[in-house]
Amino acid sequence: MVVFRNRLKEFAIKIGMGLVNQTKLITAASELSRNMLRYAGGGVVLIEIINGQRQNGLRLTFTDTGPGIPDIKEAMKDGYSTGKSLGLGLPGAKRLVSDFEIQSTVGKGTTITITKWKNG
């Protein structure tokens, strides 16, 4: 986790992302990777630098082959948790990034893509 966060920070610095946005992105990524470890036993994260119309950004894709999320709408609600956590992971992460997409199939796994623009 710490290695992943440091790696992500390197990328964020490389594209000149400000400290507040860096912190938001890394915190969101931390929530999502923890979810992957806890519920899916691990997964893969892809870090990409993307060029938008006006600015650069980072796109992270979290892919796991875990149990999947049966009710995404429910899982995106604050305070909803099947584990012992605070249930802030998914909705909190969504609030911290510019764009948040989630796809999940029960029994197959979950893919979450988040995008954070350099200045947004």
Binding site: L19, V20, Q22, T23, K24, T27, E31, D78, L86, L88, P91, G92, A93, R95, L96
Partner: peptide, 14 residues
């Protein structure tokens, strides 16, 4: 607490 951490915590909803 670092300011960036404070901003993030509030948006996270913690």
């Amino acid at each position: 607490m670092q300011p960036a951490v404070a901003i993030t915590l509030v948006e996270l909803g913690l």
